[in-house]
Design a protein around this nucleic acid. Sequence first.
DNA 1: CTCAAAGTAACCGTAACGGTTACATTGAAT
DNA 2: ATTCAATGTAACCGTTACGGTTACTTTGAG
Lengths: 145, 145
Amino acid sequence: MAIVSRYTIALHILTWLAFWAEKDEFFPSDRIANSVGTSPVFLRRILGQLAKAGLVLVQHGGTGAGWKLARRPEEISLLDVYEAVVQTPLFELHHSQPNPSCIIGNGIQPALQEIYEDSEEALKRRLAQETIKDLVGSSLEHGKR
Amino acid sequence: MAIVSRYTIALHILTWLAFWAEKDEFFPSDRIANSVGTSPVFLRRILGQLAKAGLVLVQHGGTGAGWKLARRPEEISLLDVYEAVVQTPLFELHHSQPNPSCIIGNGIQPALQEIYEDSEEALKRRLAQETIKDLVGSSLEHGKR
DNA sequence: CTCAAAGTAACCGTAACGGTTACATTGAAT
DNA sequence: ATTCAATGTAACCGTTACGGTTACTTTGAG
């Protein structure tokens, strides 16, 4: 299966917050949900992960409660978001253990582990090159048409 | 979620076949299953995909039926296997459509699409650098210890 | 004290995956 | 032509994870 849509949602949230960042308000999850098109509860779950990773700030209680970016958009890379939201490794090894008395079965897991880690690294390096600021620009550019 | 363990299984199969390739026999799915540690039916499903992609040959009927590599191990890259077995894109977009009347909601999907495709490309480029022959060598190396 | 909003637990429907059983089909060998 | 070892495939199952929802508690600014 693929990288969960949760990652897409997280990027959407941050891009939206970045777009409105100049107002320097806290935005409630309901308002963000209006743009993303999903439920506020689901968003809060994700926002909680982003907060733990230090990407957003939360304000509880009273009027004006909600969320805003903890850093400037150009200081949040897509890799930061990936690591905040995706916890599982990209590749799965065998579910049931391979036969250790088979020459190949015995050594293939560490062999795969190496190349899997390298490949995941290649993906992450690419994600590290892009920031939320880039995404705001690109979204506005595409939205025009 | 992660890239399905099916990919790991496919690599295991091909590595195993490559290891025994010098015998130039067809090997039945039951024997391969003995090394991989999973069911022959599951293996045949995957082997079918590998055959469609031209990576293995199949022999039906009678004694000596089974599977073998269609090319030399150094001519099968891990990307070939990936494309034979994984059909879905790596990243998922929104499940429910974002709000098109929101400036960000309107343009974010094509913006994400671009960076998602680039990132998947980065992953694939890395996989293209490794071959089944490399995997045989690396497995034997790790198995020694 | 009020009240808008976050936090959280519980539950649900859906989908995909790995695994298994069962049966039809193939085709080399004799 | 028969045999039979193996593939091909459909059907089904249990488990897991995900997105979505409801309902309730907690927070804390005003």
